[in-house]
Amino acid sequence: MSRTHRLFQLMQALRQGPGPKTAAGLGFEMGVSARSIHRDIATLREMGAVIDGAAGYGFTLIEDNALPPMGFRDTELEALVLGLREVQQIGDPDLAEAAGEALRKLQGRLPPRQAHRLRHSVLAAHRFQRPEAPKIKVADLRDATWEELEVQFDYTDANGASTCRQVKPLGLIYFDRSTVLIAWCNLRRDFRIFRLDRMSELQVTTQSFRPHRVVMLRDALAKIRAERQAAQASTPPASKTAEPRAAED
């Protein structure tokens, strides 16, 4: 197999299914060594493909420079509109403003018929009770999560007790009544959920935990699901729609 053909096959493998994919697994699939896969990944990155990950943690294709821009089916467009309008309702101010800007950009770049469909969409999103406004700048927290930098903040729990935490931020989840951060807490030495409206004095540190975030987030979500299932098994049916609290700190 020529190297050009192998690079093409590697891109195909990265496009298929969820990541991350390990070099050993990709190498076994294509009949080459993991070392060859690492060299090929470096070559694809030089050619413009955006591939996240590192040796030992697997690779995920983020942006494929070989595929042309795609148009939208009408139902796909409706889904985008509904999703962005939901973000306008539940997102922090920066995210809500970005959702509105994205809608305006979509409208300006779509064919006339679809632009009209977006402008007069039959779908809308409205929340009569929005989540509590955060006391921190959520954009800084999102940036720290993407950059895989630990953050510090003051936290007040449900009982009113205050602590100072330093955590590895892994992801944000927007619930009906609150927005939460999933993180690895250095104080508790375990995964924890923190409500953003109970956080204050956020500081982004220079302590990096790259490239562990994707793997840690997967483990955290698995733990939360297991705790949720265990809680549901012993909870009356009327209470099973509440937001998960098992891992909340």
Results as ranks from 00 to 15, higher is better:
124 A>K: 08
50 V>F: 03
42 A>Q: 04
35 R>H: 10
67 L>V: 15
120 H>L: 05
74 D>I: 06
99 A>W: 11
43 T>Y: 02
131 P>D: 08
98 A>N: 09
72 F>K: 01
126 H>W: 10
109 R>T: 10
56 G>E: 08
38 H>G: 02
109 R>E: 10
66 A>K: 05
13 A>K: 06
60 T>F: 03
122 V>I: 13
112 P>T: 00
145 T>S: 11
134 P>E: 07
63 E>R: 11
76 E>I: 06
113 R>Y: 14
29 E>P: 01
112 P>H: 00
129 Q>C: 10
81 V>K: 05
73 R>M: 12
132 E>K: 14
21 K>I: 04
109 R>Q: 09
72 F>T: 01
16 Q>C: 08
34 A>H: 05
31 G>I: 11
70 M>W: 02
121 S>I: 06
68 P>Q: 04
36 S>I: 02
55 A>V: 09
140 D>Q: 15
75 T>R: 08
48 G>Y: 06
97 E>C: 01
103 L>Q: 04
143 D>V: 04
147 E>A: 14
103 L>F: 08
39 R>N: 14
150 E>W: 03
57 Y>E: 15
80 L>P: 00
56 G>T: 07
115 A>M: 12
126 H>G: 03
30 M>H: 15
74 D>T: 08
18 P>C: 04
118 L>K: 07
21 K>N: 02
27 G>I: 09
68 P>R: 05
141 L>P: 07
142 R>P: 01
104 R>I: 02
34 A>W: 00
116 H>R: 13
55 A>M: 00
57 Y>P: 02
120 H>V: 02
88 Q>H: 07
113 R>V: 14
130 R>Y: 00
117 R>H: 13
37 I>V: 15
102 A>F: 02
78 E>V: 02
78 E>C: 00
98 A>P: 01
86 E>P: 00
76 E>P: 04
130 R>M: 08
